[in-house]
Design a protein around this nucleic acid. Structure first.
Length: 275
DNA sequence: AGCACTGTTTACAT
DNA sequence: TATGTAAACAGTGC
């Protein structure tokens, strides 16, 4: 599922569902999801904690606790499902958190790539993984100049590969990076260091715009089923290039093409995005 | 049947 | 150091 807009949508839906609830018990059905501590110790730390808020940093979900944070990354297929009453786990449910009011939060993840780990208030932003992230795209410190300086130093990286690096720019994944580069009129294979200041400005501006528009529409639903409340995003209807291979470009009519770049399927319009 | 593909990240090799 | 590739896993589609 998740790039920044999907994670933001999940956080917004989870916040009212779990904020203020106290954890009574934790069942780890698959220990692979839990990082840093063995699952028993991890569960022991969580029991008795109250979730005071749900925040987002990059593509990470931060469950703010009375003491510290539960940090989760959904990777490719992770999903949180809140339930108002005790509910039997379904296939691919790997963690069940039960609150004192008997409502529950289920973590479901077909591919088991997702992670959960604990952090203290003191270390959450100063230790990996959050310490490795660039500023948020909406942070005023994420300026065109700062991004340009960073990209200029890249020896050979393609601009798409650079933008997917969360230490350079936060929140873009394979859908929104392709959409950003299309809107900015920049070919995905262009060396990052070759972009002019104006091009970097277009890329940064369009990235912020795409992310904001996608958040407004609850993200994109391509092939996964649902968000925490069962709803689906609608931004997939507004995609210009991702998944549009062979379709006419909505700007110029030229056929959208797909290539492989850095191991990822890469969609672009060869007319609107010159090399 | 078998292989390539999938909204992510990172460990490892070069 | 920087960058590219494979791997983690399960499912789908050709």
């Amino acid at each position: 599922m998740p790039e920044l807009p999907e994670v933001e949508t999940v956080c917004r839906r989870l916040r009212p569902a779990v904020s203020g609830k106290t954890i009574q018990s934790v069942d780890v059905l698959d220990p692979k999801i839990i990082r840093g501590l063995d699952p028993e110790e991890w569960a022991h730390h969580l029991i008795g904690e109250t979730i005071t808020d749900v925040e987002r940093r990059g593509k990470f979900i931060l469950f703010k606790l009375t003491n510290g944070y539960l940090v989760s990354h959904l990777r490719m297929e992770g999903k949180f499902f809140p339930h108002e009453t005790t509910t039997e786990p379904v296939k691919h449910t790997h963690v069940v958190i039960t609150f004192t009011d008997q409502s529950t939060l289920h973590y479901n993840d077909v591919r088991k790539f997702g992670t959960m780990e604990l952090r203290t208030n003191e270390t959450i932003h100063t230790t990996p993984p959050l310490s490795l992230l660039a500023y948020e795209p909406f942070d005023e410190r994420m300026t065109t100049e700062a991004l340009h300086r960073r990209l200029e130093r890249m020896k050979t990286r393609a601009i798409k590969t650079a933008l997917l690096d969360q230490s350079i720019f936060v929140g873009l994944g394979n859908i929104y990076v392709d959409e950003t580069l299309f809107r900015a009129g920049v070919h995905p294979t262009r060396p990052a260091a070759s972009l002019s200041r104006e091009e970097v400005d277009r890329v940064r501006t369009e990235a912020v715009a795409v992310l904001n528009e996608a958040i407004e529409r609850g993200g994109s639903t391509i092939r996964s089923y649902a968000n925490p409340d069962g709803a689906t995003g609608t931004f997939q209807e507004r995609l210009y290039v991702y998944g549009q291979t062979g379709e006419p470009c909505r700007r110029c009519g030229h056929e959208i093409e797909k290539m492989k770049l850095g191991g990822r399927g890469t969609h672009y319009c060869p007319h609107c995005q010159q090399c």
